[in-house]
Deep mutational scan, measured.
Amino acid sequence: VAKRKCPDHGLDLSTYCQEDRQLICVLCPVIGAHQGHQLSTLDEA
């Protein structure tokens, strides 16, 4: 199974943004649109 990539940063989608209910990469909460959002690992989601 191919991993999905972040459209903004090109990295694997490895984190779940609880606020926006979507998968994001590790850079999205650091330099992207998900700064300050509640996050979960994929195992927790």
Rank of each mutant, 00 (worst) to 15 (best):
G32I: 01
V1G: 06
D8C: 07
L39H: 13
C28G: 01
G10Y: 06
D20W: 00
V1M: 10
G10I: 03
V30R: 13
D12W: 05
K5A: 04
A2N: 15
K5E: 05
P7C: 05
Q38I: 09
D8T: 15
R21C: 13
K5T: 06
Q18S: 11
D8H: 14
L39G: 10
H37Y: 01
G10C: 05
E44M: 09
K5L: 05
P7G: 05
I24W: 01
E44K: 09
Q18L: 08
K5F: 06
A33Q: 11
C17E: 02
G10P: 01
I24H: 03
K3W: 04
S40G: 13
K3T: 11
I31S: 15
G36M: 04
L27Y: 08
V26W: 08
R4W: 05
T41I: 06
C6H: 00
T15P: 02
A45K: 09
R21M: 11
C6P: 00
I31T: 15
R4I: 09
L27E: 15
V1A: 06
R4M: 13
H37M: 02
R4A: 08
T15I: 06
H9K: 00
D8I: 14
G36R: 05
C6V: 00
Q35L: 07
L39F: 11
S14P: 01
Q22C: 14
C28T: 00
G10V: 03
L23G: 12
A2D: 15
L23D: 15
T41F: 04
I31V: 14
L27D: 15
Q18V: 07
C28S: 01
G32M: 02
V26E: 15
L13N: 03
L39W: 10
K5I: 04
G32C: 02
D43P: 12
H34C: 06
T15D: 12
L39Q: 14
D43Q: 10
C17S: 02
L13Q: 12
D43V: 09
P29N: 08
T41M: 08
P7T: 15
A45Q: 14
T15W: 04
L23E: 15
H9F: 00
Q35R: 07
D43F: 05
A33R: 11
S14F: 08
L11P: 01
L23M: 12
H37Q: 02
P7S: 07
P29S: 13
K5V: 06
T15M: 07
K3F: 06
C17R: 03
P7Q: 14
L42G: 15
Q35N: 07
G36Y: 03
T41V: 10
Q35V: 10
L23S: 13
H37S: 02
S14E: 14
D8Q: 14
A2T: 15
G32A: 03
A33K: 12
V26I: 07
R21Q: 15
E44S: 12
T41N: 13
A45W: 10
H34T: 02
H37K: 02
L27Q: 15
C6N: 01
T15N: 13
D8M: 15
P29I: 05
V30T: 15
G36Q: 07
E19W: 05
Q38H: 13
Q18D: 13
C6E: 00
P29W: 04
